[in-house]
């Protein structure tokens, strides 16, 4: 069994204190502060990262249990010099204000668009068995695990729809 965890393509040894959450491992041990701690209890989504393709709350999982896993954080999605389409859209549509929930929103939205493509259903899906579409109502439900206290939701939805439509056109 590997005793390392892959973060944005780089292998790192697991933390020595098993209590270390994946979130604290990223922030404290690796200095990857892009992933935010908003509540530490899975109640806000600011700590969302993508593990083996699935978005999760990094605060509610132990880093030591992710040996061999492939983790993508906000730092792995884009940089100021080379931002991802969602990052560009969030800036264009002002899909943030204070910016603290934003990396979590972007990670979440990145995985969410893949989930729609993969046909995952949501509480907003009228029909569980038909094709899933990135409608405003679907995006609102699927992004409800990421709180934004500044109240940028309307712009977040606009940014994501923009990218979803570009994706459809591509």
């Amino acid at each position: 069994m590997p005793d390392t965890i892959t973060i944005n393509g780089t292998d790192h040894p697991l933390p020595s204190d098993p209590r270390t959450s994946l979130l604290d491992f990223l922030r404290q041990d690796l200095g990857l502060h892009g992933t935010k701690k908003g509540c530490d209890h899975g109640q806000c989504g600011a700590c969302t990262v993508i593990v083996n393709g699935m978005r999760i709350n990094s605060c509610l999982t132990l880093a030591a249990l992710h040996d061999g896993d492939d983790v993508t954080t906000i730092e792995g999605l884009g940089t100021p010099e080379n931002p991802s389409p969602l990052q560009v859209a969030f800036v264009e549509h002002d899909g943030y204000q204070c910016g603290y929930c934003t990396p979590g929103q972007v990670c979440s939205a990145t995985a969410m668009l893949d989930e729609i493509k993969a046909g995952f259903a949501s509480d907003a899906s009228a029909d569980l068995t038909s094709e899933m579409k990135a409608t405003a109502e679907e995006i609102r439900e699927r992004m409800s695990g990421n709180l934004c206290r500044c109240g940028a939701y309307a712009n977040i939805v606009a940014a994501i729809r923009d990218v979803a439509e570009q994706g459809d056109a591509a």
Partner: peptide, 21 residues
């Protein structure tokens, strides 16, 4: 005009209080 600090925020490179090295 889009926020001048926008890219720093969306890429997680804008430092908040607890994050200074």
């Amino acid at each position: 005009v889009s926020r001048v600090e926008g890219l720093a925020k969306v890429t997680g490179t804008a430092p908040y209080a607890a994050e200074y090295p």
